[in-house]
Every structure is written in structure tokens, then in C-alpha cells.
Design a protein around this nucleic acid. Structure first.
Length: 478
RNA sequence: UCCUCAGUAGCUCAGCUGGUUAGAGCAUCUGACUGUUAAUCAGAGGGUCACUGGUUCAAGUCCAGUCUGAGGAGCCA
């Protein structure tokens, strides 16, 4: 057996007492021909390896270049130096893989995130990205923990789908037809009956409709999978391929839905605060350092750690859409004509409006409910006022909409009526309507953009820095 | 897709109202030093100034187009 290593994260919690250990990792720096800062990815902290002068061959020492991989046997001893409590006094060092110093692009210094994005295959070797991806993992694990503890069933909804019913965005076509010469109908349109699935298919834009099928039998389900949008969005908040969590619950109304979403977000934040304190500490300092370059008024009022603690300790503000519009209309910003877009009942709230509510007015996450029905999807439950639907969006500071959800329309006649008005083809969604035909129940659900959650927790400002291999317009490298 | 800004060494940047051979720090390489902490000291190598075209005696610098990136907007999660 090759791997008898001790992980550096574990080892650093020991009391050094001459224990014999084997560690493996990558060289972060090699100082003074004696001191190797070794990182193995288990933690941001490096282990100092002491290679005593004269003990190792000069030709071997020359190979301890940045990012060379080493296997080191030695004894764990108290460090004589000031920067660390312990160090590994090396007895035997083996180079597992050399790293050409001239060609290796990462230096022991600060790099711009833009540059690291160009070498996304190597960026995991930096402190920032290793922290981000350990936290991303923790969040993913916490998602399953949360729902499992509540008795939800993890439902795998399809990635290839034939329905374009939700209209959540432009879709990526999935086909095996030759694109330069596809079979055609008499009227010239492409004949998809000859395609692999016998019909036109796409990558999913949402698992919600299928999720409702699960919820109306299993009671409470959640999905957690990739989602694809072919929108030409070039922003720091959008990806063409992203991960979404979509719980769907039978016997839930809008308020139950909001309570669950809020509890969920609190749970995710607490989980990371408890399990990744060092990574959060590092990212918090990084962000503070980064913001020192900004003018005073653009800097955050709180550090990342303070912000997370604050969000966790406070309940989210809950207001109706109508109240939100009133707040905007009575705001100093509105009176000073600071808003670029018009504010009046019936509009969809613009980024600048959401930002004002969350960052200026309430200074914490806000849940906005009961939107006008005309700006929301067909499946949302119509309220008795005839004007609004039982929708709710959770808006978070810095990233905007993090959750979008609603109580679903369970009344067959109302649902069909709404589909007709919005030109949603009922015949294609016959399977969806069957849930309303056979024992319909009040139910609700929401979608949470996983990367936006990771952004919120890590403080990373560009969404491309919280997913390992970002997919965006003109970007599919690695 | 729209608006704004940017693209000079491996990285981060300087390069003035156009004017001789394009600079610095870090990184890399060579040597020295040896309890270092992004080690230090000395030296060396490293450039199609994003690309294409134009203006000019002369373009890294001015103009046009293209490409790429960033920030913001729209769409949304």
C-alpha cells in the first residue's frame, strides 16, 4: 500500500513529541535551502518541513521547486522558528513529481482573480480557491443533511427534457441529428421524429415541474442538480451551467414555504461557520484587504464573518410587493431621482430597487411576497385580490435574488385558465395537470441558486470564482 | 445583447503634449549566505507593446475595425 500519509490538517492538531509521520503534498515555497512550506489541500495552513543542512543531496534540494510534489518521512518536533508551533524534521524526502519552475505560472504572491480564471485548472492550488471549494463542498453536504434530517426525499429530475413549458430561459438543444443536413418536413422545418428521442429535446432549465410530481406523492422532496440556460448573460451573477436546489412540499402554503427557506439558509450558514472556520477567516481577511483599494463608501460595513453572523442572528424582513413599492416611492433615493427605472405598482423590481431595499433600507435579507400575477409564472397560486400571486423572492445583500419560490396553483380550473392567458401549451403538460386531476393538494416550493449561496458565504464577487469549471458565453475551457 | 473601462516581460504595473536602443518590482535561472516565514544579497536571461488596417518624416502613444477581459444593465438563480 502506497498511501500511509497523515493529513496536514490532522497533524497540526497534535502536540509535537517526535512522532514519526509520513506526509505528502505540494511545495508552496522553499526557503533558505532548508525550509519547505508544504500544502496537501486538507487545510490552508502549510506544514513547515525542516530539511537539515548537509543531510540531503544538493541535486535533490534543487528539485524542491514551487508545486513539486513530495513524500516526506520524518519526526514531528516543536519548531525553533517563530512562525509555527511545530515542524516536520525530515529523514527521507522523495520527489513524486517535479515541477518546472520556469513554466509554472503561480508564484508565491498575490494574483488577480482574472488571471487565475485563465488558469482555472491550477487555481485550486491557491489559498483562496482551496478555501472556496472546501466551503462549496461543505455547503453541498449541508444541503443534503438539512433535507435528510427533515425526511425529504432527494429526487433526481431529468437533465434532458422535452418540455419548454416553464419558459425560464433560452435552452440548449440536445440532438444527434447532423447539424449541416438534418432531415426536414415538407414545410422545411427540421423533422425531429427522426431524432434520438423522436422529438425535440433540450437541457433542463428547472426541475420544478417534475419535482411537483414527486411532492404530490412522496410529500416532501428536493432536487439538487445542474441546470442550463443558453441566455447570452455576461455578468458576475450568471452562468450557462449552474446548480440549483429545488425543494417542493405538499401541504405547504406560502408562509410554510418562507419559513422553510429561511431556516434552510440559516442552517447552511451555521454549518459552514461551524465546520470551516479557518477557510472563512481567510476569505474574510482577503475580502477586507481587497476592499481597502476601494473608496470608503464602496467598502462593506461589516467583514464577511460579521455579515454571516449578523444574517444568522436576525430574522429576514418580510414585506409584500405592494409595501416594497411604497417604500421605494417614499425613499430619499426616489425623491432625488436616483433610480434609473420607473417605480410604480406592476413593474418588476429592478436590480437597483432590490439593492436599495436590501442594502440601504433594511440592511439585511428581505423576503418580498405577493407579486403582481402578470410578472410571474403560470403555476403560481392566484390570490383572492385577483391581482397578485402567492410568490416569494428572497433578496440578499450583494447578490440580489437568491431564492425564488411560490405556493403553486392547485385548483385545476384556475391553473388551466392562467395557462391559456399566458399561452402555455396545456397539451404538452398533460402529465403536470394530472397532479391536479387526481387528488390535488395545496403545495409550495422554491429554487435556490447554489452558486449564489456559495458567493454569499465566501464573499466572492464573481460567480465564475465559486464553480470549478465555469460555463458562460464564449467560455468552455477545461 | 447594450453601456463604460482596459489589453505593454510569466505576474502586477509605469511609459508625459507622437521623437533615438521600451522600464520597474516580483517570478525564473546562476552564484553566495544559512533557523527561514511571500528569506536575504549579487548577477543574468526574458518583449510581434492583443490583432488588422490607417494617419504621419516618425506610432506602445493618434484614428477605425476586430478579438479578449473587467464593471454595470437587461434576462434570471
Amino acid at each position: 500500500m502506497f498511501n500511509k500519509r497523515t493529513k496536514i490538517k490532522d497533524l497540526l492538531s497534535w502536540t509535537p513529541d517526535g512522532q514519526e509521520v509520513t506526509v505528502m503534498g505540494w511545495v508552496r515555497s522553499f526557503r533558505n535551502n532548508q525550509f519547505i512550506a508544504l500544502n496537501d489541500g486538507s487545510t490552508n495552513q502549510n506544514l513547515q518541513v525542516f530539511a537539515e543542512l548537509g543531510k540531503f543531496d544538493d541535486q535533490l534540494l534543487k528539485r524542491f521547486t514551487t508545486s513539486a510534489s513530495l513524500k516526506i518521512q520524518g519526526h514531528l518536533v516543536a519548531s525553533l522558528g517563530k512562525g509555527q508551533v511545530m515542524e516536520l524534521k525530515a529523514d527521507h524526502i522523495e520527489v513524486l513529481g517535479d515541477s518546472d519552475g520556469e513554466a509554472y505560472p503561480l508564484q508565491p504572491k498575490k494574483h488577480s482573480l482574472e488571471f487565475l480564471r485563465e488558469i482555472a485548472h491550477l487555481r485550486f492550488r491557491t489559498n483562496t480557491f482551496s478555501s472556496v471549494f472546501r466551503i462549496r463542498h461543505s455547503l453541498a453536504f449541508a444541503v443534503h443533511q438539512f433535507f435528510n434530517d427533515k425526511g425529504f426525499v432527494y429526487l433526481h429530475t431529468p437533465i434532458i427534457t422535452a418540455s419548454d413549458a416553464e419558459g425560464a430561459g433560452e435552452m440548449f438543444r440536445v440532438t444527434t441529428l447532423p447539424f449541416d443536413n438534418p432531415p426536414r418536413n415538407e414545410d422545411g422545418t427540421v423533422n425531429f421524429t427522426e431524432d434520438f428521442f423522436g422529438k425535440s429535446t433540450n437541457l433542463t432549465v428547472s426541475g420544478q415541474l417534475e419535482g411537483e410530481l414527486g411532492a404530490t406523492a412522496l410529500g416532501e422532496i428536493y432536487t439538487f442538480g445542474p441546470t442550463f440556460r443558453a441566455e447570452n448573460s455576461n455578468t458576475s451573477r450568471h452562468l450557462a451551467e449552474f446548480w440549483m436546489i429545488e425543494p417542493e412540499m405538499a401541504f405547504f402554503d406560502l408562509e410554510d414555504n418562507m419559513n422553510l427557506a429561511e431556516e434552510f439558509i440559516h442552517y447552511l450558514i451555521s454549518y459552514v461557520m461551524k465546520n470551516n472556520p479557518q477557510d472563512l477567516e481567510f476569505l474574510s481577511q482577503r475580502l477586507t484587504e481587497e476592499e481597502k483599494q476601494l473608496p470608503q463608501d464602496k467598502r462593506s460595513e461589516m467583514t464577511l464573518l460579521e455579515k454571516l453572523a449578523f444574517v444568522n442572528d436576525n430574522v429576514f424582513e418580510r414585506i409584500t410587493y405592494t409595501e416594497a413599492v411604497d417604500i421605494l416611492l417614499n425613499s430619499p433615493a426616489y425623491k432625488k431621482k436616483k433610480f434609473q427605472y420607473e417605480v410604480k405598482w406592476g413593474i418588476d423590481l429592478q436590480s437597483e430597487h432590490e439593492r436599495y431595499l436590501v442594502e440601504k433600507h433594511f440592511k439585511k435579507p428581505v423576503i418580498v411576497t405577493n407579486y403582481p400575477k402578470d410578472i410571474k409564472a403560470f403555476y403560481m397560486r392566484q390570490n383572492d385580490d385577483g391581482k397578485t400571486v402567492a410568490a416569494m423572492d428572497i433578496l440578499a445583500p450583494g447578490i440580489g435574488e437568491i431564492v425564488g419560490g411560490s405556493q403553486r396553483e392547485e385548483r385545476m380550473d384556475k391553473l388551466v385558465e392562467r395557462m391559456e392567458q399566458m399561452h402555455v401549451p396545456a397539451d404538452e403538460l398533460w402529465w403536470y395537470l394530472d397532479t391536479r386531476r387526481f387528488g390535488t393538494v395545496p403545495h409550495a416550493g422554491f429554487g435556490l441558486g447554489f452558486e449564489r449561496m456559495v458567493q454569499f458565504v465566501t464573499g466572492m464577487t464573481n460567480i465564475r470564482d465559486v464553480i470549478a469549471f465555469p460555463r458562460a458565453p464564449k467560455q468552455a475551457e477545461f
